[in-house]
C-alpha cells in the first residue's frame, strides 16, 4: 500500500522520445538514459547496485541490449507489471527483455539476501 504512495509521488525519469543510448537496468529492467542512471542511480535497485556516479557500475549493471518498451503507469494494478515483476517498482518505462546478467558480485549479494535472481533475458523457464 505504502509503496503505492511512493508510486504516486515518485516516478523514474522518463526518457525523452529522442533519447539515444537508453540503458536498461539488468535487475529491474527500468529504462533510462545513461546520464540519468549516473545522476540518480536506479530508483528501484540503487540500494543493491550502487549505480549513482559510477559509470563502471552502470556499464556492468545496465545494458543497451534490450527490447520492448513498457510504460508502467499503474504498476500496482497492472498485470503487465506483475508479469514483468515490476509491480513494486516505481512508475516508469521498463524493458520487456534485457540481455545480459548482473555482475556476479551482485548475484552473490542477492543470494546472500535470499533473493532469487531472475535474469531479465527471459531465459529462465518456469
Amino acid at each position: 500500500m505504502s509503496s503505492q504512495n511512493f508510486a504516486d509521488e515518485e516516478a523514474a525519469s522518463i526518457p525523452t522520445v529522442k533519447t539515444k543510448h537508453l540503458r536498461a537496468c539488468l535487475l529491474c529492467s527500468l529504462v533510462m538514459s545513461g546520464g540519468e542512471f549516473r545522476a540518480r542511480g536506479c530508483p528501484n535497485c540503487e540500494e543493491i547496485l550502487q549505480l549513482k556516479h559510477s559509470p563502471d557500475r552502470i556499464s556492468a549493471c545496465t545494458s543497451v541490449y534490450f527490447d520492448g518498451l513498457i510504460s508502467n503507469i499503474d504498476p500496482e494494478n497492472s498485470w503487465v507489471a506483475k508479469w514483468q515483476r515490476t509491480a513494486n517498482y516505481v512508475r516508469g518505462v521498463y524493458a520487456v527483455r534485457v540481455k545480459g546478467r548482473i555482475p556476479e558480485d551482485v548475484e552473490a549479494d542477492l543470494d546472500a539476501r535470499g533473493i532469487k535472481y531472475r535474469p531479465r533475458d527471459q531465459t529462465d523457464a518456469d
Partner: peptide, 27 residues
C-alpha cells in the same frame, strides 16, 4: 521491506512465471 522503496527485495522473484498468468480479474 515493501515500504523501503530503496531497498531491493525482488519479493516476487520466487513466484514461478506460470503463476503470473493473467486471470479474468486482470485488466
Amino acid at each position: 521491506y515493501r515500504r523501503t522503496a530503496v531497498r531491493y527485495t525482488g519479493d516476487m522473484n520466487e513466484i514461478p512465471q506460470r503463476l503470473l498468468m493473467p486471470s479474468v480479474h486482470d485488466a
